[in-house]
């Protein structure tokens, strides 16, 4: 279980998150919704330690991790799949996975398990990451994060720019991980895509967490979606 307790952060002197609180249970897909610039990606960067915490606490399975530097935080079991995938483009598929495996000293068995989830990657192990198609790159970004054997998985717009078959493949993997007990925090722009997979939804506005609702309750409430997402 991942808890954010009243966290503040920002760039330089510009504050982005203000007293944001959020709980992601193990075995749930928790979705962050909000307009552009509301602070969704910043929330993820604060969890990974790529943004410094100004105030508040981040607690993972009872242990406070907010004070750890970014590279130590990954070792506590936080897998990050960033927006735009951000693979190590000049390295091969195998080397990208190797970096993920090194994070927590994972074994070859983990590698095999991850490759079983994405058989397409097994065929392309010695290809450089930048030569993969968009969907394959997203698979690799996901696989790289799974090599950490994450307790928490952070996905920032994983379906951006992908064709429907690829979106389905990613979604299947995510739900399978949820069922295996991983806590999943998802940022997604397309509401229809969210509602079909998410368990709970938190709306975020101007860096503040607003309402948290069960996804099934949201279908009836167009006004809430309109309020936080409408342009």
């Amino acid at each position: 279980m991942l808890e954010l307790q009243h966290i503040d952060t920002g760039y330089g002197s510009a504050q982005v998150l203000r007293e944001l609180s959020l709980t992601v249970q193990s075995g749930e897909i928790h979705c962050l919704l909000g307009r552009n610039g509301a602070g969704k990606t910043t929330t993820m960067k604060a969890i990974t330690g790529l943004m410094p915490l100004w105030a508040g606490r981040i607690v993972l399975d009872g242990a406070e991790i907010g004070a750890l530097p970014a590279h130590e935080r990954a070792k506590t079991g936080i897998g990050y799949i960033p927006q735009g995938r951000r693979l190590f483009t000049e390295l091969t598929v195998a080397q990208n996975l190797e970096i993920g495996l090194m994070t927590r000293g994972a074994s070859g068995a983990v590698r095999d398990r991850v490759l079983d989830l994405f058989p397409r990657l097994r065929e392309r192990l010695h290809q450089r990451a930048q030569t993969l198609s968009g969907g394959e790159q997203q698979m690799l970004a996901t696989a790289r994060a799974l090599c950490i054997e994450p307790k928490v998985l952070l996905l920032d717009e994983p379906t951006e720019g992908l064709q429907p078959s690829m979106i389905d493949a990613i979604r299947t993997v995510i739900t399978r991980l949820r069922d295996a007990g991983t806590a999943i925090l998802l940022v997604e722009q397309r509401i229809d895509a969210v509602l079909s997979v998410a368990d709970r939804v938190t709306f975020i506005e101007n860096g503040r967490g607003r309402e948290t609702l069960a996804a099934r309750d949201l279908h009836a409430q167009d006004t809430i979606i309109e309020r936080y997402m409408g342009v």
Partner: peptide, 9 residues
């Protein structure tokens, strides 16, 4: 940044 996110000091 991604190196840090994957545990590289």
């Amino acid at each position: 940044e991604m190196a840090q996110a994957f545990g590289i000091p």
